[in-house]
């Protein structure tokens, strides 16, 4: 397969390597060091770094600016873009802005509802949905056209990604939904954090049965637990998250000071098992405010060194 964009992530995946991506949340302030420090910790262990877009609807430094900081450090960013806060004018405009800095990866998302964040009284936009954002980026890239039909001078060259949550309900449409995203033009997928491996494997199997794994690169999402409390919180409070009881039990079963280590162990074991799953083409390691652990996870999972592609 040949690549369609200058994205390093695309090149690594196309070459058949297991890709490794991670993500950083921008700060609630304007100090660029909050991003550059995190990125510095993980730069040698990942192929690209996602920058979240006002995740959980909490106002933060914008994803695009943070991506530019990574770019200036020579790190490949993935621009996360939610459709909650911008209409089609702003979305297309930001895509062009990102393209002007040669940002080559984009992740198209709906975004959490604003009621979860710091501005629950604000408006939301949802002019288009994440499926339609995928279509929009592909239109801009492949046909060099705006949604309005006009031509784009120097169209964006972006490898187009989206999220998939195999654990949200109803399960029976989770694979059809993946198929739909593929039909919309998605090229890589980063999944929701996987703790229920059996269910993930079932989802992957159903996707493979339809041949979807040959049409899209699927990066399995993992997040290490820092504590038993975090495991319980994710299980009970985060919508669309599936944390089986035995995982919570395993975390609670070790003394407090050992829980962080156990969390990393679980994460590494999950990656080892997921590596064997047909259709898994890489990993997306979301170590929430725990970036310093990413190198250890990558190394212990046998994913280091990263392929040298430039």
């Amino acid at each position: 397969m040949s690549t369609k964009t200058p994205s390093k992530l695309e090149e690594i995946l196309t070459a058949g390597h297991l890709a490794v991506t991670s993500e950083c949340g921008p700060p609630r302030g304007s100090d660029p060091e909050d991003i550059t420090k995190k990125a510095e910790m993980i730069r040698n262990h990942v192929d690209a770094i996602n920058i979240t877009d006002n995740q959980t609807s909490v106002t933060r430094l914008c994803s695009l600016a943070a991506c530019v900081h990574l770019k200036m450090m020579g790190i490949e960013p993935t621009l996360q873009m939610v459709v909650r806060d911008r209409n089609r004018i702003a979305l297309q405009s930001d895509i062009l802005g990102a393209a002007s800095f040669d940002i080559h990866n984009i992740l198209c998302l709906s975004g959490d509802h604003q009621q979860f964040g710091d501005c629950p009284k604000g408006q939301n936009v949802f002019d288009i949905d994440s499926m339609q954002l995928i279509q929009t980026v592909r239109l801009m890239r492949d046909e060099g056209k705006f949604l309005g039909g006009d031509e784009i001078k120097r169209p964006p060259q972006m490898f187009v990604g989206a999220a998939a949550n195999p654990f949200a309900d109803p399960f029976e449409i989770r694979v059809p939904r993946l198929a739909k995203k593929i039909a919309a033009g998605v090229e890589f997928i980063q999944t929701q954090c996987i703790y229920n491996l059996d269910k993930f494997e079932l989802w992957m199997k159903l996707a493979c049965d339809r041949g979807l794994h040959e049409k899209v690169y699927i990066l399995a999402g993992v997040t290490p637990f820092k504590s038993a409390g975090m495991a319980k919180y994710m299980k009970n409070r985060v919508p669309g998250m599936d944390v089986p009881d035995e995982v919570v039990k395993r975390m609670s079963g070790v003394p407090k000071e050992k829980q962080a280590e156990e969390g990393i162990n679980i994460c590494v074991e999950s990656i080892q098992r997921l590596k064997e799953v047909e259709g898994v083409r890489g990993f997306h390691i979301m170590a929430i405010e725990w970036e310093e652990k990413v190198p250890e996870i990558v190394e212990r999972s046998g994913l280091y060194p990263r392929p040298d592609i430039s």
Binding site: D169, P170, Q192, P239, G240
Partner: peptide
């Protein structure tokens, strides 16, 4: 809650919307 024309979003849980357990997920 997100006016999605191609839903459901990843927050749909047991038939309910991510914003409230008292609200049916329209896409369900």
């Amino acid at each position: 809650a997100k006016r999605l024309l191609n839903g459901p979003c990843g927050g749909s849980t047991k038939g309910k919307c991510e914003i409230s357990k008292d609200l049916d997920c329209a896409w369900q």
